[in-house]
Amino acid sequence: MPIHPMLSLTGLLLLLPLAAAATTVNRCHDQGGNVTFTTLSCGAGQDTTAVNINPASGMTFTPPTTKADALHPLRTREAVVVGQRDDGCGNVLNAQQRRTAIINYKTPTGMTKRDVESLLGKPDKIVSRNAEVRYVYSEKKGHSRQVIFDEHGCVKGKR
């Protein structure tokens, strides 16, 4: 029974990504004994050790420890914060305050339009005046709820 040429070609193409997924990781040592792992090249004045890792092989990469780390296992280094979340509203609310407000069905100062729409849904009416946007939500018995946003799309505080 002959194999269709397209079927064999398709089978070969499926195996192609397995060979192309290998990554080279460089282990860089500086003069102070600090170790950095990067897929880029090491900086000037740093020694390098390259390791090829193929995810399809199932091999895991465990960075070797230095002699200094083996001698002082409880030595800690200060964590450096590289970036943080910026919600565009000055980070007035932290994650816990935001969750508590959503659970309690509140719209405190500092919430974003996205947070308000997640909580209350799309507004029934949007009113814009100057740099102020007002979301109007119609509720039961003729009552309405209004949420006022500033020019940055953040809930404004009470005057």
Rank of each mutant, 00 (worst) to 15 (best):
M1L: 11
I3T: 09
H4E: 12
H4M: 11
H4D: 15
P5H: 03
M6E: 07
S8A: 15
L9Q: 10
T10N: 06
G11N: 01
L13R: 06
L13C: 09
L15T: 01
A19Y: 11
A19H: 08
A19D: 09
A22Q: 10
T23C: 14
T23I: 12
T24Q: 13
T24K: 13
V25E: 01
N26C: 06
R27N: 15
C28D: 14
H29E: 03
D30W: 02
Q31K: 10
G32F: 01
N34Q: 14
N34A: 12
N34D: 08
V35T: 04
T36I: 02
T36V: 01
L40E: 15
L40N: 14
L40M: 14
L40H: 13
S41H: 12
C42K: 01
C42P: 03
A44Y: 00
G45N: 04
G45D: 01
Q46L: 01
Q46M: 01
Q46E: 01
D47T: 04
T48V: 12
T49Y: 05
T49N: 03
A50P: 05
A50F: 06
A50E: 04
V51F: 09
V51M: 12
A56N: 09
S57T: 13
F61Q: 15
P63A: 10
P64E: 05
T65G: 15
T66E: 05
K67S: 10
K67R: 10
A68C: 04
D69P: 09
A70D: 15
A70C: 15
H72L: 02
P73C: 08
L74T: 05
L74S: 14
R77P: 07
E78V: 10
E78H: 08
A79F: 05
A79M: 09
V80A: 11
V80N: 07
V81F: 10
G83D: 04
D86A: 11
D87E: 07
G88R: 00
C89S: 02
C89Q: 04
G90I: 02
N91F: 04
V92N: 00
N94L: 08
A95Q: 06
A95D: 10
Q96E: 11
Q97S: 14
Q97C: 11
Q97K: 14
Q97P: 11
R98T: 00
R99M: 03
T100M: 14
A101E: 11
I102E: 12
I103P: 07
N104P: 02
N104Q: 04
Y105V: 12
Y105P: 06
Y105N: 14
Y105F: 15
T107Q: 07
T109H: 03
T109Q: 07
G110D: 11
M111H: 09
M111W: 10
T112R: 13
K113W: 06
R114I: 10
R114H: 14
R114V: 15
D115C: 13
G121I: 02
K122D: 03
P123C: 10
D124S: 13
V127L: 13
A131P: 01
A131G: 02
A131Q: 01
A131C: 03
E132Y: 07
E132N: 08
E132C: 09
V133C: 08
V133T: 15
V136T: 06
V136I: 05
V136P: 03
H143E: 10
H143P: 13
H143V: 07
S144V: 09
R145G: 12
F149Y: 15
F149R: 08
F149C: 12
F149P: 12
E151L: 05
E151I: 02
H152E: 02
H152Y: 02
H152L: 05
C154V: 00
C154M: 00
K156M: 01
R159G: 00
R159N: 00
